[in-house]
């Protein structure tokens, strides 16, 4: 019981810090995911169409993914300096791989008979992509977005090291002052945020997936 009351006291006394860190964290995650989606969607579709570039593009994003996130933030500092932009760049690059790969897989997995029927009926390439391939790949794309989101929310705790704030601030202060309750007061919202985003996206996915495709499972 003492544990909870101590934790509660910390949360109440540091509420201003936690609240602003939470908002910064949301902002960092949301903006980087949104930009990553804007980059990945056309990129994934493009490599699915021109198969020649699929391997190199996915390879590069995979290599970027393997760089330890802490080191990656460090690399960026001499190039772009410190601040929110540095954090955003790192987070966007991290989020690319799961989305690009799932857009690519989703599009190339569309049954060839769908493509043949659509082409044979006189859909242009663009109409085919928009009306047939994208909707059929949608569940895959959403799975990629969800993976990327959970990942980004976790990695965003490192933004504190480039002075971009976020819940990492709270955790870092807790570590420095050897205050486990403060560490927890930063970590718990991160977890809640990740779970919350994941639920919201799952809900969105179910809403947006046409009924006819849900029958498949």
């Amino acid at each position: 019981m003492e544990f909870f009351s101590n934790f509660y006291d910390i949360v109440v006394s540091r509420w201003d810090l936690i609240e602003s860190a939470f908002i910064e964290h949301m902002y960092l995650s949301f903006v980087s995911i949104a930009i990553a989606i804007l980059i990945s969607l056309p990129l994934g579709m493009w490599i699915a169409k021109t198969k020649r570039f699929a391997e190199p593009v996915i390879g590069v994003t995979a290599v970027l993914q393997t760089i330890p996130s802490l080191a990656f933030f460090g690399f960026l500092v001499p190039i772009v300096g410190i601040g929110t932009n540095t954090a955003l760049i790192a987070l966007i690059i991290y989020a690319l791989l799961p989305i690009v790969r799932n857009v690519y897989t989703g599009i190339i997995r569309v049954d060839s008979s769908m493509i043949e029927a659509a082409t044979g009926m006189g859909l242009t390439k663009w109409q085919r992509l928009r009306q047939i391939e994208f909707p059929l790949a949608f569940p895959f794309i959403m799975a990629g977005v969800r993976t990327a989101t959970v990942l980004t929310i976790g990695v965003a705790t490192l933004a504190t090291f480039v002075g971009a704030g976020g819940l990492g601030d709270v955790i870092y202060r807790g570590l420095q002052s050897n205050n486990q309750y403060l560490v927890l007061a930063g970590a718990v919202p991160v977890a809640l945020l990740a779970i919350g985003f994941d639920f919201a996206l799952k809900w969105l996915e179910n809403r947006a997936t046409p009924k006819g495709m849900q029958l498949k499972d």
Partner: peptide, 29 residues
């Protein structure tokens, strides 16, 4: 594209679009 829209096409694997209703499938062209 214009040519294909003037020609009906039925394939062996049927090729109905699973995310569209029967009515939507029929009214594509």
């Amino acid at each position: 594209v214009a040519l294909r829209r003037k020609i009906g096409y039925v394939i062996q694997k049927i090729g109905l679009f699973p995310h569209m209703t029967i009515a939507d499938n029929i009214s594509i062209v």
